[in-house]
């Protein structure tokens, strides 16, 4: 094995990992805390990409400011969505699935009618690194950095802040948390907003690398769904991290060796196999493992 090839493979791995992580994290946090699957997640990513693109071309803001605007704007939109729609489906997960599917149709088709079939994309910052005949997109490496940063931030909020403690309490036992004075509805509202804001951030970050079309959300959600199914909802951050790490290690070498199609099939089959043996996903498995270890320590 020559070193440049390994470096190139590592770069592809990082690229895959960042994509899966950013696409799925918001979806997973919402699933973990509110126990609802948001099928409109892809359209929230689309909204983020549109916000960034429009802010860049019409308001002439610098790219980082545009991305920040997407983060805030889509977060606020998520809040609105939670208030008007999601709130009614806390106990009806299948109902939430179907309702959010309706939202996704409305958003993508509404955008098509409202702004037409496509927008001109934000020009991609042209930094390239070269190494032994390979060249690597600098912006891609930046995306990888951003995805790691986002996970660290989420972890910090989850485990190091008061809000995080309350959220975890709500996750484990909503009734008990409520009895102890936690305003669970507020927790749900903020969580949904945070998940949406992450979708907006993803859309904003990937806006320069893709075509800006109303149906662009679907290219993110199919892999996001697989990541979520494999990760499970028991612990969103751990689930997203382990699941995308595993899936990227399958799709990067497969698609490098056999083409993108087999990389895709590999992802889908992995999901089916994992689900047969670990019905609650990787994070559920880790949770069980931890419980068992704790039980073992006690006895």
């Amino acid at each position: 094995m020559n070193v440049p090839y390994i470096v190139s493979l590592a770069y592809q791995y990082a690229d895959n990992l960042a994509f899966l992580l950013l696409a799925a994290l918001g979806l997973m946090i919402i699933l973990g805390v509110i126990d609802v699957i948001n099928l409109a997640h892809g359209e929230l990513i689309m909204l983020g990409a549109y916000t960034t693109t429009l802010a860049y071309h019409r308001a002439h803001l610098p790219l980082p400011a545009c991305v920040l605007l997407s983060f805030i704007g889509v977060g606020a939109f998520g809040m609105l969505l939670e208030r008007t729609v999601i709130r009614r489906f806390y106990r009806d997960k299948l109902g939430a699935l179907v309702a959010t599917w309706g939202i996704s149709l409305l958003l993508s088709q509404g955008m098509l009618l409202f702004l037409g079939p496509s927008l001109i994309a934000v020009p991609l910052p042209e930094w390239t690194l070269s190494y032994a005949g390979y060249s690597f997109g600098g912006y891609r490496l930046l995306l990888f950095g951003a995805s790691i940063l986002v996970v660290l931030l989420a972890w910090w909020i989850f485990y190091r802040t008061k809000f995080g403690v309350r959220t975890r309490a709500t996750m484990q036992n909503p009734a008990m948390a409520q009895a102890l004075g936690v305003d669970t509805r507020r927790i749900y509202l903020y969580t949904f907003a945070a998940g949406s804001a992450l979708a907006g951030l993803t859309g904003g970050l990937y806006a320069p690398t893709t075509t800006i079309v109303p149906l662009m959300g679907t290219t993110f959600v199919d892999v996001a769904f697989i990541t979520v199914v494999v990760g499970g909802g028991a612990n969103p951050i751990l689930g997203a991290l382990t699941s995308s790490a595993l899936l990227a290690s399958i799709s990067a070498p497969l698609s490098s060796a056999f083409g993108t199609f087999l990389g895709r099939i590999g992802l889908l089959l992995t999901a089916l196999v994992i689900i047969r043996f670990l019905p609650r996903g990787l994070s559920g498995y880790f949770q069980d493992l931890q419980r068992r270890r704790m039980a073992g320590a006690r006895s």
Partner: peptide, 27 residues
């Protein structure tokens, strides 16, 4: 058999059937 004998939770079935659609269509 894979799905129901594994006793997965209810939300996984719609997601997995979506994945099945995607496999078949792509294939």
């Amino acid at each position: 058999y894979f799905v129901f004998y594994g006793q997965v939770s209810a939300w996984i079935i719609p997601l997995l059937t979506l994945v099945l659609s995607l496999i078949l269509e792509t294939f």
